[in-house]
Nucleic acid binder design. Structure first.
Lengths: 154, 154
DNA sequence: GGCAATCAGTTTCATTTGAAACTAATATAA
DNA sequence: TTATATTAGTTTCAAATGAAACTGATTGCC
């Protein structure tokens, strides 16, 4: 009598982690294409610019924290942005290990071009949802974001 | 009078594409760690196994379609799974280009171990949501999934 | 039949990513 | 002070990924 216990079915298309991963990858890819074609900007570069555009004069470590990037990714992104003249770096006077990063004038200019595009993209996504659905989505995401996923795995 | 037009603010933490990407990456990383530590299985390998576990005897192209993977990723994942003896491949009698893939007995065994873990993980995520929130999340995801993202970018 | 176009799957090569080691500066503490 | 540990950021090296070229099989069309 093989397989007496029925195995609960796992259908990938309905599996939440799979759905989130594929949806978010599709969104990220289209956005990445938009940014890279028009502005020669990778996703980590764009994240760094977005953070520095809103909060200038912070260190690489702070950029990493705010942008959910690791410090290696930030180091590389900032190096490229500096090479393109979009970010300027100074040394913190009180701690010469720390850098003080900010968009250059050229970086600012690009930032101001991208922000409306990014917001329009988001609005196009949200347009399909009712106000109530948007509120629920926000609440759900906040709840999932606040979970300690590492401890979820036993 | 510089900057007469106020720039609409873009706060990354509230930006939907950013939220989806970081949340889904965190979930994927914890799951990947779970699978790889216990079962020596990467995400693409796990996806292939999940698909073949539910729908055996399909071709690599079908695996790719169902698993939202490109054919290169499937080719590599299947090669590794075959090397580990978890997947068996035959040649389709009617078309000798096409392969017919299925889990081996060893693959089946692992599959049956993983499915309950995966479902438990999902359940732990969903446990925090009310029935109504779950239904709304499902509806929202379906709506976003059905969007033609490529055309969203003008 | 025979020849071009298409399709399934693989391989190659360049780029990206991630983990760990590393450098330089600062903090801690004997 | 002077060792020791910690922190900020970079570099290195191996593995993962993606795009394009490739191989072998099939189809469509003359």
């Amino acid at each position: 009598m093989p397989n007496a216990e029925a195995l609960a079915a796992l259908r990938l298309p309905g599996f939440l982690p799979y759905r989130l991963a594929t949806l978010s990858n599709r969104i990220s890819r289209t956005i990445a294409r938009l940014y890279s074609e028009r502005f020669d900007l990778s996703i980590p570069e764009w994240r760094c610019m977005a953070i520095l555009g809103e909060t200038p004069d912070i260190s690489a470590t702070e950029v990493a924290e705010r942008g959910a990037l690791d410090k290696v990714a930030v180091s590389r992104a900032i190096a490229r942005l500096r090479a393109k003249g979009r970010v300027e770096r100074h040394i913190a006077p009180d701690d010469r290990r720390r850098s003080v990063l900010a968009l250059s004038a050229a970086g600012e200019k690009i930032y101001r071009e991208i922000v409306p595009l990014a917001l329009a993209y988001e609005e196009a996504l949200l347009k399909r949802l009712s106000d109530e659905e948007r509120a629920t989505l926000d609440r759900i995401l906040r709840r999932l974001e606040s979970m300690d996923l590492e401890k979820l795995v036993e």
